[in-house]
Amino acid sequence: MNDYRVDERGYYGAFGGAYVPEILRGAVEELQRRYVSILESAEFRREFDRLLRDYVGRPSPLYPAERLSEKYGCRIYLKREDLNHTGAHKINNTVGQILVARQLGKRRIVAETGAGQHGVAAATVCALMGMPCVVYMGKTDVERQRMNVERMRMLGAEVRPVVSGNMTLKDATNEAIRDWCAHPDDTYYIIGSTVGPHPYPDMVARLQSVISEEIRRQLLECEGRPNPDYLIACVGGGSNAAGTVYHFLDDPTVKILLAEAGGLGIDTPMSAATIHLGCKGILHGAHTLLMQDEDGQILEPYSISAGLDYPGIGPLHAHLFTERRAEVFAVNDDEALRAAYELTRLEGIIPALESAHALGVLPRVKFSLQDVVVLTVSGRGDKDLETYLKYMER
C-alpha cells in the first residue's frame, strides 16, 4: 500500500523538505522537533476541540444538495466550511497554529494572505489571544478584496500591501518570510496552506483534517457508511483539499477529484494550473511542482480567484497527482463563475470563487445515481460579490 503521508524527513515521495535560510534554521528545527508532541498532547487537544466547538462553530454541516444532485444524477453532499466563524475553513488552521505558537513562547504573529480569508482568520485568533499580528497581502489582492482588508484592520491586525512582482499571494508570502527572517526569535509565521518548509504542510493538513473526520461521522449517519464514492475540493496551496481527503487517503475506493485554477485556459499565459503546467522546483521552502520558465524563474500565475493564483502546489497534492491518487481538473474562470451562479440559484448558497472551481468539476464527471459525492464549499462568497456582479453585467 502507498503511504501518502509525510515521512520522517518531511517528504511526500519526491516532494517536500525544508529549504530555509540559515537564520530560520533554528526556528524551523524547533518546530519540527516539537509540533507532533504539541498536537498530540492532551492539553492541546482539549483547548483545540473546545475552540473548534464553541468559537468556530463546528461541526460544520454536511448538507444534502437535492436540486444539485438531481441535475448531476448522483447524491451530492456539501461540506459547509463557509458556515464557520470568519466564513471559511482557514479558521481551523489558525486556531491550531496560534496554540502552537503560544506553546513555543512566541509573542508576535506574521501571516500571508491572498483572498484575505487566511488573513482574517489569523487576525481573528490574534485578537482572541491578545497577540500582535502583521498580515502581508499583495496590492492587487488588497484592491480586489477590500472588505477582508477592513475586517483585518478592525480586528487589530496591521495589513502591509506588497508591491513587488505580480502583487499577489506569491509576493505576499515572500514578504512574510522576509519578516520572519528579521525576527526569528519572537515571531511565529502562521502559514495559511499546505505549503512551505516541513513541518508546515503536515501540520496544516493535520489541523484541517477535522473536515474529513467529520465527513466520516456525518456520512455514517446520513448514508449508513463512512466513505463517499467521490471527494471534490479546490486546490491552490491545498489546505481545504488536504483536510477533505486526509482520512480517506488510504482507501482506494474513494476517488479524489481536485480543481485548480485554469484562468483563461491552460493553453494561454493566463493560468494558475500548477499541476497541469508545472515542473519540479523549490519555492517558499519546499520542493514541489511550480510554474516556471526554462531558466527556473517563477512565472506569474493568473486566476479570477485571489485564493488560487499561486504558482506552486502543496507537496502532498503534488505527490497525490504523480501517484495517480488524485485526478486534477483545470477549471477556467468562466466555468467557475457559471458553477457559482448555478449553486446560488439551485441551493441558495453563494460560494467563494475558490469553492466555485470545485463546483466546476461536476459537469466534467459522469456519475451514477448511487454515487455519493462530497464537495467541500471552502468559503462563502461575500468577499467576491463585486466580481460576481461584473460577470452578471457582461
Rank of each mutant, 00 (worst) to 15 (best):
residue 72 Y to N: 09
residue 138 G to W: 03
residue 56 V to N: 13
residue 63 Y to D: 11
residue 132 P to C: 12
residue 365 V to E: 12
residue 224 G to I: 05
residue 271 S to E: 07
residue 291 M to T: 10
residue 27 A to E: 15
residue 323 E to T: 15
residue 79 K to M: 09
residue 178 R to Y: 11
residue 96 G to W: 03
residue 25 R to T: 14
residue 161 P to K: 08
residue 4 Y to G: 09
residue 13 G to L: 05
residue 386 E to P: 01
residue 362 L to V: 07
residue 124 T to A: 09
residue 380 R to M: 00
residue 355 S to Q: 11
residue 132 P to I: 11
residue 138 G to K: 00
residue 186 D to E: 15
residue 306 A to I: 01
residue 357 H to I: 10
residue 319 H to W: 01
residue 195 V to H: 04
residue 15 F to G: 05
residue 165 G to I: 11
residue 373 V to G: 05
residue 323 E to W: 00
residue 157 A to D: 09
residue 167 M to V: 04
residue 237 G to M: 02
residue 236 G to L: 00
residue 282 I to C: 03
residue 329 F to N: 02
residue 253 T to L: 13
residue 281 G to V: 10
residue 326 A to I: 10
residue 381 G to C: 07
residue 100 V to D: 04
residue 282 I to M: 06
residue 312 G to P: 06
residue 175 E to V: 10
residue 120 V to Y: 05
residue 216 R to T: 12
residue 345 R to D: 13
residue 250 D to I: 00
residue 93 N to M: 00
residue 300 E to G: 06
residue 370 Q to H: 15
residue 231 L to P: 03
residue 18 A to T: 01
residue 201 P to E: 08
residue 167 M to E: 15
residue 291 M to A: 07
residue 158 E to W: 03
residue 175 E to H: 13
residue 85 H to E: 08
residue 342 E to Y: 04
residue 232 I to Y: 01
residue 259 A to S: 09
residue 7 D to T: 12
residue 270 M to T: 00
residue 183 H to L: 00
residue 61 P to H: 01
residue 208 Q to S: 00
residue 223 E to A: 12
residue 227 N to L: 00
residue 14 A to T: 13
residue 130 G to L: 10
residue 142 V to P: 00
residue 361 V to M: 00
residue 314 G to A: 07
residue 385 L to K: 11
residue 378 S to L: 11
residue 218 Q to P: 02
residue 384 D to S: 06
residue 279 C to F: 05
residue 381 G to S: 03
residue 286 A to T: 14
residue 46 R to N: 14
residue 148 N to K: 09
residue 12 Y to C: 00
residue 143 E to L: 15
residue 277 L to H: 03
residue 327 E to W: 00
residue 294 E to A: 14
residue 303 S to L: 03
residue 279 C to A: 14
residue 57 G to T: 11
residue 384 D to H: 08
residue 297 Q to M: 15
residue 306 A to P: 09
residue 238 G to S: 06
residue 228 P to Q: 12
residue 361 V to R: 02
residue 91 I to W: 04
residue 81 E to H: 02
residue 246 Y to E: 08
residue 16 G to F: 04
residue 128 L to V: 12
residue 61 P to D: 01
residue 353 L to D: 03
residue 90 K to L: 05
residue 307 G to Y: 01
residue 303 S to H: 02
residue 252 P to V: 08
residue 79 K to V: 13
residue 77 Y to H: 10
residue 181 C to D: 08
residue 336 A to G: 15
residue 207 L to G: 06
residue 382 D to W: 13
residue 379 G to L: 02
residue 214 E to W: 14
residue 201 P to S: 07
residue 192 G to D: 05
residue 170 K to H: 06
residue 36 V to C: 08
residue 329 F to L: 12
residue 71 K to G: 08
residue 184 P to C: 11
residue 143 E to Y: 12
